[in-house]
């Protein structure tokens, strides 16, 4: 058996041996098979989304007549009618509600997770081990067990039908996954700069703000982006806590539109669905690398 390193390199201009030709052909076939699999799977993956965008520009009649994604007579009627909704509010109102849920939640998550991760990664204190175990345990704890008493708690303090149940747990570092991710990231950062700052007389909070946070920026951005996506997608939270239509985020508004539009207004519903996906898609394409890095370092559900 010839070791691979003994093979003449292509740039040496010696005529290729029979074995080398065989290996090259094998590599080409291998590549061709891989590309075919990737392209076929890729098409199946992406087609529903492409088709959905096409369908949102179709008339309702056309939607049920052809599997092609290209609209024959493109129209934006679906967007116009869907935007009006069957409620007194436009779809824009529901987008603002979503935004109003997301922004404080993302800010609260970023600040609290950074503080808590800093505490865990850089300090020794009594009970640290046990507390860290609870972070991991919470990570694996199914929300379904805590949901009912949480609801009762928020009811008793009068927070139902407000955004507080959606904001406050996150502002108290309630998403253990993010805490864990930032801790992992911090552990990989050397402490030299922080120690130097401390020697120069900065206190721990100043060190955190001026030294650690800039170095942590990629991790914090990942946290913000994931929290943005998940909150945009969140359905069960608003479903349980928000009862008046006036405060609905887009996820509930979409569900409402399936329940209330006459049976066949699918083009309106799909048009609004496309709009709902647009913010997440835009953010994802603008900041892809943070997502891929985020899930590669921490490992994410999804």
């Amino acid at each position: 058996m010839v070791a691979l390193t003994d093979l003449p390199k292509p740039d040496q201009k010696t005529p290729p041996t029979a074995l080398e030709l065989k290996l090259r052909r094998k590599a080409r076939i291998n590549t061709a098979i891989r590309y075919s699999v990737l392209i076929v799977v890729g098409l199946i993956m992406v087609y529903p989304l492409v088709w959905m965008i096409g369908a949102s520009f179709k008339t309702n009649a056309e939607m049920f007549s052809s599997p092609s994604f290209w609209p024959k007579e493109p129209t934006i009627q679906g967007f116009i009618d869907g935007w009006k909704t069957s409620t007194p509010y436009t779809f824009g109102h529901f987008f603002l509600n979503s935004l109003w849920i997301i922004i404080p939640k993302v800010i609260g998550t970023a600040i609290s997770c950074t503080l808590v991760a800093y505490g865990f990664a850089r300090f020794e204190f009594p009970g640290k081990k046990i507390l860290f175990v609870t972070v991991i345990a919470t990570l694996l704890l199914p929300n379904v067990v805590t949901r009912i008493p949480q609801y009762l708690l928020f009811r008793d303090i009068g927070w139902l039908d407000s955004f507080l149940p959606l904001w406050v747990p996150s502002a108290l570092a309630g998403d253990a996954f993010f805490v864990f991710m930032v801790i992992q990231f911090l552990r990989a950062i050397p402490r030299d700069m922080e120690e130097a700052a401390r020697v120069d007389g900065a206190n721990t909070l100043q060190t955190l703000v001026y030294i650690v946070v800039p170095m942590l920026a990629p991790a914090i951005i990942s946290v913000c982006l994931f929290q943005f996506m998940w909150t945009m997608n969140d359905f069960l939270g608003p479903l349980i806590y928000i009862s008046s239509v006036e405060k609905y985020p887009v996820s509930l508004a979409l569900k409402l539109s399936i329940d209330t539009t006459e049976a066949f207004a699918w083009n309106q519903i799909l048009a609004m669905s496309v709009l709902t996906l647009l913010p997440s898609l835009t953010v994802f394409f603008l900041a892809q690398k943070y997502f891929i890095e985020g899930i590669s370092t921490g490992g994410v559900k999804g």
Partner: peptide
């Protein structure tokens, strides 16, 4: 970090501890 009170780290994780007790620990038992 030397020289700091050994409870200093607890202040940083305090939000988490509060959240853990209120929104995970208590509901879990309840």
């Amino acid at each position: 970090m030397g020289g700091d009170s050994k409870y200093l780290g607890l202040w940083y994780v305090a939000p988490y501890v509060l959240g853990l007790l209120l929104f995970t620990g208590f509901p879990f038992v309840a």
